[in-house]
Amino acid sequence: MEKLDQIGLIAYLAKKVGPNNKLGRKAVQKFVHIAASLGKIPTGYRFSFYTYGPYSRELAADLEVAEAIDGIVSCQNPGTTAFDIKAGDAADSIIKNAKNYLENQEKSLNGIFDEFGNFTARTLELYSTILFLRDEEPNIANSLDDLKKRVNQLKPQYSDAEFNQAYQHLKRIEHRFH
């Protein structure tokens, strides 16, 4: 995976989702993870599981690169400590540099943005957690109860109702990305 394509993906995400959503750094992590896991979009990032769900250190470093070259900008949310990511002045030229990659993935990426573009970081984290466990622990992937139990062990803050809703939603839409 070329670095230009990875940075292009970040700028594209900021451009597509940034204007309509509070897109913080963790939300970017979740979007990229969901794009890779559910959307089957090659991103080149490997994710590990932390308290805040699936997370890639390399993606965190690339966010800094994207910001350093004005592909994205961070703006503080008034009255909070949180920062939102928006497309920067150089976003269009960075996206252009990754044109072939983004065109190949456009349909799936836009499908992900359509489904999840308005989700909060908290909700994205639940989806991302379910997908991570499904990929990494195939022995529980096909059992609703086992998967729910594992999510509850790692993320007890989500209710059964929230899990069920996310699980059913994923079941309904996953065929679109196969």
Partner: peptide, 15 residues
Amino acid sequence: IVGAPTDSGDALLKD
């Protein structure tokens, strides 16, 4: 080291 820790406590301590 890889995959998901056992529970939320291990996930915190993985930090």
